[in-house]
Design a protein around this nucleic acid. Structure first.
Length: 348
DNA sequence: GAGACGTGGCC
DNA sequence: TGGCCAAGTCT
């Protein structure tokens, strides 16, 4: 059958050239009985949600060196894990990571459930991650569908319906290719194809092992798949960030546990709104009575809005802040690291 | 179920 | 340079 031919071609390509990634056990090694560690598979999958391999890899190495097992992670303090995650983004992932590790440690004796259904209940494991961990770590057949797989399906079958409406159809097409044989390798082969050859822009079709099956290639413009509906434009917001120093230390605050940058350390800020802040308004919202002076601004793009942070700097005292040495600033999310650097640099 | 939720790289 | 994009989940 065509589907089985396609599978055989893609798996052969994967066997010959699977990427060597720190959390992966390559097919040849699996043949000698080596299996992937569920903890490492889970950790990598969570870090890779909406995140590129180059960005996630150093974090994965840092986490596994510091917390070699899920129990080690479960026993760590929240602040330490949030600080280690700083810069990776989507911080709800870090909060759920800890909640999941503690659930596995407390309710499952430190052993991950070995089925998709069992995994799906854990915090931070949605349909994709539960299926991926079940397939990769436990060799459970399942339909592992992420953005790569959606793109590959949209191209193989030249799906005209635009994303995100096409998601159910793409998932159905992917399901029709799943078999009981080598489910983990199949999932990773599909994702490797999407990441290396069947890329969003400039796909490398002349090296694709399944180009002969690709309806999008046959149209002459494979890169135009998947179709997408136009996105709404991002609004702009303004806020004031306060860089308060006491000698070599900087005043930080802990953000509320939910919402944007929830649970992370931050510079004190005003509210964020659609209008720029006047000097008087900015002084009014300051966390301390001090000789504030403007030291410029920084701009930062979030997923759903663009933020301009007007920077005010002063030397002084304040209550309810966390005084932090400059070295500790690497626990800040990128937006505040950028603001802190700009504000402190202005003082030199 | 539509919107919230980060970041850095690329062209 | 600014919009697009990357191994999604939660509410």
């Amino acid at each position: 059958m065509t589907a089985d031919t396609l599978r055989a071609q893609l798996l052969a390509w994967y066997d010959a050239g699977a990427r060597d990634l720190p959390w992966r056990v390559r097919p040849a090694a699996q043949a000698s009985g080596l299996r992937a560690d569920p903890y490492r598979v889970w950790l990598s999958e969570v870090m890779l949600q909406q995140t590129t391999v180059p960005h996630a890899t150093p974090y994965f190495l840092k986490f596994t060196a510091r917390w070699p097992s899920v129990t080690d992670l479960a026993n760590e303090d929240d602040g330490e894990v949030m600080a280690a995650w700083a810069g990776l983004g989507y911080y709800a992932r870090a909060r759920n990571l800890l909640a999941c590790a503690r659930a596995v440690a407390r309710e499952h004796g430190g052993v991950f459930p070995d089925t998709e259904e069992g995994l799906r209940i854990l915090p931070g494991l949605g349909p994709y991650t539960a299926a991926a961990v079940a397939a990769i770590a436990f060799d459970r057949p399942g339909n592992v569908v992420d953005g790569n797989v959606e793109r590959v399906m949209a191209r193989l079958f030249a799906v005209e319906q635009p994303l995100p409406d096409a998601k159910p159809e793409l998932k159905r097409l992917a399901a029709a290719l799943v078999r009981d044989q080598r489910p983990g390798d199949w999932a990773q082969a599909l994702m490797d194809l999407g990441a290396t050859l069947c890329r969003p822009k400039a796909p490398i079709c002349d090296r694709c092992p399944v180009a002969g099956h690709c309806a999008a290639l046959a149209t002459g413009a494979p890169e135009t798949f998947p179709r997408r509906t136009a996105k709404a434009e991002r609004p702009h917001r303004y806020g004031v960030a306060y860089v308060l120093t006491r000698g070599e230390e900087v005043a930080l605050v802990r953000r509320p546990p939910k919402g944007l940058l929830g649970g992370m350390l931050a510079l004190p800020t005003s509210d964020w709104r659609s209008a720029r802040w006047s000097d008087a308004e900015a002084l009014d919202a300051a966390p301390a009575d001090a000789s504030w002076r403007g030291v410029g601004e920084v701009e930062h793009g979030f997923t759903h809005f663009t933020l301009t942070l007007q920077l005010l700097r002063a030397e002084g005292e304040a209550d309810d802040v966390i005084w932090t040495a400059r070295r500790g600033l690497d626990a800040l999310p990128s937006v505040f690291l950028k603001a802190a650097r700009a504000g402190l640099g202005a003082l030199l």
